[in-house]
Computed example of a mutant assay.
Amino acid sequence: MNTPPDSAQPLLIVSGLSGSGKSVVLRTLEDLDYYCVDNLPAELLPAFVANITASAETPPRLAVGIDVRNRPEGLIQLPHSLAQVGGMGWQHRLIFLDTEDEVLIRRYSETRRRHPLSLDGLPLADAIAQERQRLKPLIAIADRVLDSSQMNVHQLRRWVVTELASNTRPGLSLLVQSFAYRHGVPGDADFVFDVRCLPNPHWDPRLRPLSGRDAPVREFFEQQEPVNDYLGHVAAFLDHWLPRFESDTRSYVTLAFGCTGGRHRSVYCAEWLAAHWRDQGRTRAVTFHRELE
């Protein structure tokens, strides 16, 4: 029988209603160095874990998304699949995201996405009801059911970092967000950095439609000496002081970078600094771009 090299290594099963935020949770876990797989057939879970365990470089943390896109019989058999995984020595937890029906209907209306069960003209409300019925076997065995009805993307990411990932991996986590000053400064930030003094690609018609995550905008900033100088000073400041927060038993620190529109400068700086800390291997960093998400 294969056993993970460290019995404390976790396997998180992320499930829930379509539109409840499962993708946000998985993306955040991926930022926190989890090896993530979405929409895995439930009956293949034991084989997947066995294959990962047998690998020469076993990922330290796994997260798997399992939801209504699975075959109904696979969802019913999930408890047996989890029992097999437990027999391999992995500590599994099932996280289920629930959301009120009216909130789900509003989210689908705003995003214009199609519900996975909305086939052959099935009304959205009926699709949600059918989904709840199919997912009952998962709710019954969930280790944690989270109601995400009143949570935005940023709040859900924060919950993953502070309530979920911190239980399996101690140490300081950073929530790095970008914002537009014209929409207000985030009230929960520990540090706020104003980057409106930096060159603005908004005035370049080629770059204006893009964001700080796009390659042409990154290349623009990389060629700007003031940007490199600014980021160097901010990184040096935080590299010096963040360990003090960690030694003070803080589990997370929120950093906010603001510019005029929250699209170019602040986004680039947030992504750059998050990558800086990830490259060091000392600190987990999750990004959130308020004006883009």
Rank of each mutant, 00 (worst) to 15 (best):
Q91L: 03
Q223R: 14
L94A: 07
D279E: 09
R182L: 12
Q177M: 14
F288M: 01
N39C: 05
G74S: 13
N51G: 07
A50H: 05
D143P: 05
V192H: 11
R114C: 08
L255Q: 06
G281M: 06
F220W: 11
W90E: 01
Q77R: 15
E163W: 01
M151V: 09
I52D: 00
V286C: 10
N200L: 10
A50Q: 15
P123L: 10
E100T: 10
V103Y: 02
E73Q: 13
V14C: 07
W90V: 00
S55M: 10
Q150K: 13
I139Y: 09
A270D: 06
Q133Y: 02
W90P: 04
A127I: 04
Y230I: 10
R284L: 12
N39F: 02
A270K: 13
T260H: 08
V25Q: 08
V185T: 15
L75D: 00
R263S: 03
T162H: 04
Q150R: 14
L78G: 14
L135N: 08
M88I: 06
R218G: 10
V176E: 05
V153Y: 01
R265C: 06
D101A: 14
R113W: 03
H154L: 15
Q9T: 03
E219C: 07
Q177I: 09
Y34K: 01
L94Y: 03
S7Y: 02
G184W: 11
V160N: 10
L11M: 07
L97Q: 12
E110I: 12
S251N: 11
I105P: 07
G261Q: 04
V37Y: 01
H80G: 11
L292Y: 10
G21M: 07
G262Q: 04
S211P: 11
V37H: 01
L238W: 03
F191V: 07
R113Y: 02
S18D: 05
T168G: 07
K136L: 15
V153Q: 11
A165M: 09
L273C: 06
D6L: 09
N70I: 05
S251M: 03
I141F: 02
W203F: 15
R93K: 13
Q130A: 13
L124W: 06
H240I: 03
A275F: 00
D190M: 02
L138N: 04
W90L: 09
D147A: 03
P4Y: 00
D190R: 03
R265W: 03
V217R: 02
A83V: 09
